[in-house]
């Protein structure tokens, strides 16, 4: 081994030729590892290597690049399991960070969804497959997430978000999509656990889309939290009327209620589309300063 004894007293040194090759990445893996091991204990060789690298512009640049890479890896923010999953489907790093900041992707949110769904499915199982509660509750789950995705009072950094150039409408939309991607599959899976439900078990899906559309549209006039609360209140009020006016079993009346019939399903699907359209026409409201008398065209 040129200039590199396998073992030896601590006063041996690597030859200049070997250090030059090392600085240019010209050594094979075994030799490079051997030199690195020696450099850890030999200040004299480290100094000589530093001089060689400094004198060789290309090596110095390569070392700087390497060092920046190392620092960048050390500094890279933690993204957790959810972040890795999002990044895994090709979502850029900066969008992943924006999405992850929403409370809707935190573990506590997912646990809350699971608890609500477990309660609703449990009720359906106890009543022999009557999923009226599930149908009533399921559309509200995404609303809770969207209502807490953006705005003062739900985002501690909202003041900075408002002053930043990244459009608030974009942040809100990205987070709303993240909420839907999390909540809808879980709710569909829960619905399919109800025996004998069949396609009717997911009859909540189009009403849910309609309520999400209504929330998006309303949030261009008021905060997302108020918009979600308004949409949820409307939904619950409608079901309460059905419940109170039921001639027979109230749960049967809910199962046969308008939102779960074909015409109702079509109406809620249309509501979802109209809501998205209104949002797309008025999204600049998100980016306007808060308060009155400022029209953002």
């Amino acid at each position: 081994m040129d200039g590199l004894p396998r073992t030896g007293p601590p006063n041996w040194h690597a030859s200049t030729a070997v250090l030059e090759d090392y600085s240019r990445c010209g050594l094979d893996v075994a030799r490079a590892a051997s030199v690195e091991q020696h450099l850890l204990t030999c200040a004299s060789c480290r100094d000589q290597l530093a001089r060689l690298v400094a004198a060789d512009g290309a090596a110095a640049r390569e070392l700087d690049e390497l060092w920046i890479d190392v620092v960048d890896i050390i500094d890279r923010p933690r993204v957790g399991v959810a972040g890795r999953l999002i990044a895994g489907v090709g979502v850029p790093d900066h969008i992943t960070r924006v999405v992850l900041a929403t409370p809707a992707l935190r573990l506590s949110w997912i646990v809350s969804i699971l608890l609500v769904l477990a309660f609703a499915v449990g009720a359906a199982l106890r009543t022999g497959g009557n999923d009226a509660l599930l149908l009533a509750v399921a559309p509200l789950i995404p609303l809770a997430g969207i209502g807490s995705a953006y705005g003062a009072g739900v985002d501690p950094m909202h003041e900075l978000v408002r002053a930043a150039p990244l459009p608030g409408s974009r942040i809100f939309l990205l987070r709303s999509i993240a909420v839907l991607v999390t909540a809808v599959p879980l709710t569909v899976a829960a619905s399919l656990l109800v025996p004998g439900g069949g396609p009717a078990a997911v009859a909540w899906l189009l009403p849910s889309i309609g309520l999400v559309g209504a929330t998006l549209a309303l949030s261009t006039w008021c905060s997302p939290r108020t918009a979600a609360a308004t949409a949820a209140s409307g939904w619950l009020a409608g079901l309460a009327v059905v419940w109170l006016r039921a001639a027979g079993s109230p749960t049967s009346a809910i199962l046969a209620a308008f939102p779960f019939r074909p015409a109702g399903q079509a109406l809620f699907a249309a509501l979802g589309g109209i809501g998205a359209l209104v949002f797309s026409l008025r999204f600049a409201r998100f980016d306007a300063p808060g308060g009155r008398q400022v029209e953002v065209r």
Binding site: D75, P77, R78, H94, R97, V98, A101, D155, P156, M157, H158, E159, L160, V161, A164, P165, L166
Partner: peptide, 22 residues
């Protein structure tokens, strides 16, 4: 009162604001 996510480190917080600044 900038409002911090308390679990963010200094780097993560400023990096997040940098993302907001596009």
């Amino acid at each position: 009162e900038p409002g911090f996510y308390p679990d963010f480190t200094v780097f993560e917080f400023i990096d997040y604001v940098a993302i907001l600044k596009e």
